[in-house]
Design a protein around this nucleic acid. Structure first.
Lengths: 165, 165
DNA sequence: GGGCGCATGTAATGAGTTACATGATTGA
DNA sequence: TCAATCATGTAACTCATTACATGCGCCC
């Protein structure tokens, strides 16, 4: 949850926004860097408000659905920096889920195993190509994307090595 | 959850066991490859039983607490193979959580940013050293560990590159 | 007799997901 | 007029986590 809070606070720090706007931005620009879903974001915004990290103002244009415009508060800014520091300084062991399957690889017949791993390889390559096709982005997102590519490539190269054994 | 089920089914496929035994094995040998916790494992075993993927037999030695010995069923074996195939063939984009912070790096003062990233670097190195110190393991776990190391190193190298900018 | 190991869980809580609900406006 | 977009969410559900409960056996 922390990284989700960090994301919302970070976006709100640059500019006060309403939920739809945030979700829209995330979906269109950050889909590859986060997996925060809409319902989750709405709920989280509400929780952030309860904790006093953001403040809401209602806005209405004509007869359109009213907007809840969220702005970061003073304590929100502080919390943002704290979260940022801890997350930047942290290094969690990466991605157990995918690794679990690797432990049991040998339970499949060699040819089937190869087939699965080849599919995996294709997907990795597709992901990489996909990320590299994005025209270099606004600088902020770039680091995250860059890291993604680096990790995906390392994964792919390792996988290719495994396939040769 | 799928990878947790895969893990338990995989372990039970090799040998029928009771919950304590599974948890013990996981804690002692697989802590670095999975993050399945005890309470979760017990609950999951129960769910697997409800779905008919495993069967339970009660055992009692003397006056000691009775054991629920879980054995994989026929449909459990099938499900295991299905899960294994899908997970082996899958390639999810890696680890968004940590990447989120990277997007907002620039919100910190340069020296503080460097400090955080250096802490991160130390932790990565510690993780790597830790994994490499393990005497080469039973072959099954090895692939998972190997991949971990590869990814951690890629992450570290990338981070070192970033630190130079 | 006191603590550790064995062996099971439950309870409370919280985060996240998918699918659905609502209702107005705008553009083809 | 019909679909998409704007804008909010709720409901039902699943998974996971932490902390705690229970009670016997074994060894020092």
């Amino acid at each position: 949850m922390d990284h989700h809070a960090l994301l919302l606070l970070g976006l709100l720090k640059n500019q006060a926004q309403h939920g739809y706007q945030l979700n829209d931005f995330i979906e269109k620009n950050l889909a590859r860097v986060t997996n925060l879903k809409k319902a989750t974001a709405y709920a989280l915004l509400e929780r952030l408000r309860e904790s006093g990290l953001v403040a809401v103002k209602l806005e209405q244009e004509g007869n359109r659905p009213p907007r809840k415009v969220y702005a970061i508060t003073q304590s929100g800014e502080t919390e943002f920096l704290n979260l940022l520091r801890t997350e930047l300084s942290s290094a969690e062991p990466i991605s157990s889920p995918e690794s679990t399957a690797l432990m049991f690889m040998s339970e499949l017949e060699p040819d089937e195993r190869m087939a699965c791993l080849n599919i995996r390889l294709e997907k990795l390559n597709a992901h990489i190509a996909n990320l590299e096709n994005i025209p270099t982005h606004k600088s902020a997102v770039n680091f995250a994307l860059e890291r993604q590519v680096v990790l995906l490539k390392a994964d792919r190269n390792w996988l290719m090595g495994v396939l040769e054994r």
